[in-house]
Computed example of a mutant assay.
Amino acid sequence: MPDRSGLRLSFNQSFIVFTRCILCLIPTLLVLLSGTQLPAQVAGNADGSVCDEGFENKNGSCQRTDVPENAYLTGSSYGSGWECNHGFQNVGELCEEIRVPENAYLASTGDQWECNRLFQRVGELCEEVMAPQNGYVETRFGVQEIHCNWGFRKEDQDCVAINVPSNGRLTDKNSADGWVCLRGYRAAESGCEPVAVPQHAYLAPETYSGWKCERGFRANRDKCVAILVPSNAHLNRRGDGWECNRPFTRQNDQCTENVPRQ
C-alpha cells in the first residue's frame, strides 16, 4: 500500500496555518462589530494623498474631519468633506439654520428660500405684488408679471381702457393701440377709414393698402393695370407677372427662341 503519512503531515500543517489566520482576524472583526474607530494614522495612504471617509489631508497626513453641528460627511476627498443638512447654510465653518421670512418657503434644494406666489423678494423680505385694477399677476419662468384684462392695456403700473374707434375691434396681436380696423377699413389718424377698392381688385386685409389686384393685373399706385403678356409667354404662378414658354428665353419684354449654333 502507498505511504500516506506525508499527505497527512502536509494536511495537518495547512490546517494549523489556516487556523492561525482565522485567530488573527478575530480581534479585527470584534473592533468592527463594536463600532470602534481606527486611529487616524492608519486611515488612507501614508503620504496623505487619499484619505478614508471621515478623514482629510492635513500637512501630508490623514486627520479626522471636524464636522460642525447640523452637517454630514460627503464621503469625498475633495473640499471640506462635509456639507450642511437640509435647511441649513454654510456660514464660515458653521451650519446656521436658514431663516425663512413671512410669505416664503424653503426651496426644495434646502439651501435657500423663495417667496410665495403673488409675492416678490425685496432684500430679505417678501412683499406682495399688487395687481392694478382691471389687471392680474401671472408667474412666468419664476418671474411675477402684471398683465391687463381683455380690453385694457398697461400704462406704467396701471391698466387703462382701450379706446376702440368706430369700425374697429380689439385684438390680442402685436398692436401698439390694442385694436385693428375691421375688414374693408384701414387705420388712419381719424380712426378707421373705408378702403377704396379700385377696379380689378378685391379686399385683402393682410396687405397695407387693404386691397389686392386680381390675377393678370399689377398694382400701380391706387390702380390695377393689366399685365401685357408677349407672344410665347404665360402668367406666372402668382399672376402678377409673366414667364416665357419653353424653350423660349426672356430678352427685355419679348420671348425669343434659342437657336442652336451650327
Score class of each variant (00 low, 15 high):
Y136D: 05
G87V: 02
N174T: 12
T36P: 00
F88C: 05
L94W: 12
R221P: 00
Y208D: 08
K212I: 06
R140C: 01
N167P: 03
G92P: 00
R8H: 13
R246A: 06
S175C: 07
V50N: 11
D253P: 01
V229G: 02
E145F: 05
F141C: 12
F11L: 15
G110R: 05
S61K: 14
P247Q: 01
V225E: 11
G178V: 02
C255M: 02
Y202V: 08
Y136W: 07
W179Y: 10
T249Y: 09
Y202N: 08
S76H: 11
E155R: 15
G87I: 05
F55T: 03
Y72Q: 14
T171M: 06
Q254D: 10
H200Q: 10
I22N: 14
D156V: 10
N174G: 06
S10I: 14
Q199C: 07
M130I: 07
E127M: 10
E124A: 06
G60Y: 02
C255S: 05
K223S: 13
C95W: 01
C224W: 00
S14D: 07
E96V: 13
S10W: 10
D66E: 11
N232R: 15
C95E: 03
M130L: 09
G178C: 00
H86G: 03
N163I: 09
R8Q: 10
P101G: 06
K58Y: 09
G110D: 02
Y105P: 00
Q41H: 11
L30K: 12
D66G: 06
G184I: 03
V129R: 02
E93I: 07
G60N: 09
